[in-house]
Design a protein around this nucleic acid. Structure first.
Lengths: 215, 215
DNA sequence: GACCTAACCTATCCGCTGTTAGATTTAAGT
DNA sequence: ACTTAAATCTAACAGCGGATAGGTTAGGTC
């Protein structure tokens, strides 16, 4: 799009800019996250398979071969993106279901955390939720494991709430799938990630869902 | 899949093969739908950009160049797939919203029709909902038009129900988005398309949604 | 100042991509 | 039987894809 062929990362004579020089030599940890987040943005726009290693490399100011110093293949980059939208929610959101409180309270906390995490990493969600078929069989199985576990935990809270009479009697598996699809779908149309948006979505969705769940 | 009434008007000497010969010469109309549904299945498995014209051609028993007799480009095939999951619902499902009845009744009918159509064409949904970025700017605008119109009509029913006091007061735009994401998400995990599945999903979802909408 | 390793480079391979041109075969109409 | 148009074929092109091998620079450490 902006067709800049060689940004020429030579030293700018005077002083480093306030923001990332976007071509300077960086430690691995920084570069890895920089690569992943740049790739996620391009993948989200054009689709995983339509994007070349050269595209990713150019946007962060290096050559395509240098990417292989940080990732052993293009698919490994996609795998990293998928992990942030499957492992992170499992590790950061699910503990909320183990806290004290009624099923309603715990599920409300989870919904809020889920939407917040989704808005924080919404480009990664866009990619991770739709490009799974491009993963290696092993990596895909790994990712699916996290997804299934997340779904199972949500289903269990629903089932618990139904047993205690707090929730309406429904097929808990289907209800969990529907709720998660509704939440993840937000990544497809949300613009920006301002707190107002978060609160608006969370308020509408929790009202809709819990009024539907309560008998 | 190939439920066409006249499979092969050619009399093959002794007995007609039970299945399609998968390479015989066919009239355009048949080939076009055959190409589209074959492509949809492969696109759903491997992703649009990862699939070559040769892959599509091979699975239906012709050479890749022959595809260009029916479609002028690979993107036109994708466009045809997208149309079946956006224009068809607009033309077939939305009239249910114009029928007589309360907002609840009309929306229930739409939800049922939507899920049935989705199960009928669920491979096409899988592709059409996720590969839109690969479309031409004009084609994408076209597809987005159908999607926006569908969403707007659902939102209007919700708003009407809220004005009449039949539905709880919610942000109708967000509620419509959430409901549609929930419905379309079914394509991501459903197996088969038996009527029992349809009824199960429709029952759970309508209960969950309308209990949530009613004050 | 010498040294070592991490980070990045240039140059290149080869398989595969969508697409086209032009020849050929089939089916249908007369 | 002859003609015609639709359907399919063979052959090829031009270019881009991910990936590799091996050389080069930067930055911290002794």
């Amino acid at each position: 799009m902006t067709g800049l062929p060689a940004p020429s990362p030579r030293s700018p004579a005077t002083l480093g800019p306030v923001q990332e020089p976007a071509g300077r030599r960086k430690p691995t940890a920084q570069r890895r996250t920089e690569i992943v987040s740049a790739a996620a943005r391009i993948f989200a726009d054009q689709g995983y398979a339509a994007v070349g290693m050269r595209d990713i490399a150019t946007t962060i100011g290096i050559r395509s071969a240098s990417l292989y110093h940080h990732f052993s293949s293009k698919e490994e980059i996609l795998y990293a993106i998928c992990l942030t939208v499957t492992r992170e929610p499992v590790e950061q959101n699910l503990p909320l279901l183990d806290a004290a409180g009624t099923p309603t309270e715990r599920l409300t906390a989870l919904v809020r955390a889920h939407v917040r995490h989704l808005l924080h990493r919404h480009v990664e969600y866009l990619v991770g939720l739709h490009e799974r078929p491009a993963l290696t069989a092993e990596h895909r199985a790994d990712i699916d494991g996290y997804l299934h576990y997340y779904h199972r935990r949500v289903r269990d809270v629903l089932a618990a709430g139904m047993r205690s009479g707090e929730f309406r009697e429904l097929n808990p598996t289907l209800a969990a799938l529907g709720i998660l699809d509704m939440l993840n779908g937000v990544s497809g149309w949300i613009r920006g990630s301002a707190d107002e948006d978060t609160d608006d979505v969370v308020a509408t969705y929790t009202t809709l869902l819990f009024a539907g769940l309560h008998p």
